[in-house]
Computed example of a mutant assay.
Amino acid sequence: MSATISIRTDSELKKDFEVFCKSVGMNSSTALTIFMKKVVAEKRIPFEIGTDPFYSKENTAVLKESINQLKNGRGSRRELVE
C-alpha cells in the first residue's frame, strides 16, 4: 500500500534536488523514501543539524560593532561576499 506526502519547498531547491537525484540514478521520491527509512530505522535524523555559524555570538558581536561604527561615521560600507 502506498501513500502520498505533499510538501511545499522553494522551487529552486526542488529543481537542484531533482538534478542531484538524477545524477545518482534515482528520482526525488526514491531519495525521500530512503531518507524516511533511515530516520525510522535509526530513530534520529541521519546527519548533523547545526546552526549557521554566521549567527554565532562572536560574529554577531563583530556585526553589531561594525554597525555602530557605520552609524557613528567611523567605517565604510562593504558588499556582502558569499
Rank of each mutant, 00 (worst) to 15 (best):
Met1Gln: 15
Ala3His: 04
Thr4Glu: 12
Ser6Asp: 10
Ser6Cys: 09
Ile7Asn: 00
Thr9Ala: 13
Asp10Gln: 04
Asp10Ser: 06
Asp10Cys: 04
Glu12Ser: 07
Lys14Tyr: 02
Lys14Phe: 01
Asp16Lys: 09
Asp16Glu: 08
Phe17Leu: 13
Glu18Tyr: 06
Cys21Thr: 00
Val24Gly: 02
Val24Pro: 01
Val24Gln: 08
Thr30His: 10
Ala31Cys: 07
Ala31Lys: 00
Leu32Phe: 07
Ile34Gln: 15
Phe35Asp: 04
Met36Ala: 15
Met36Phe: 15
Val39Phe: 03
Val40Glu: 15
Glu42Pro: 10
Glu42Thr: 13
Glu42Phe: 09
Lys43Ile: 02
Ile45Thr: 12
Pro46Trp: 11
Glu48Tyr: 03
Gly50Arg: 15
Thr51Ile: 13
Asp52His: 12
Asp52Trp: 06
Pro53Trp: 09
Pro53Leu: 09
Tyr55Thr: 07
Tyr55Glu: 08
Ser56Gln: 06
Lys57Arg: 12
Glu58Ser: 11
Glu58Lys: 10
Glu58Met: 06
Asn59Ser: 00
Thr60Leu: 11
Thr60Pro: 02
Thr60Gln: 11
Thr60Trp: 02
Thr60Val: 10
Thr60Lys: 11
Ile67Tyr: 14
Asn68Met: 10
Lys71Trp: 12
Asn72Met: 14
Gly73Pro: 00
Ser76Pro: 00
Ser76Met: 03
Arg77Thr: 12
Leu80Arg: 03
Val81Ala: 05
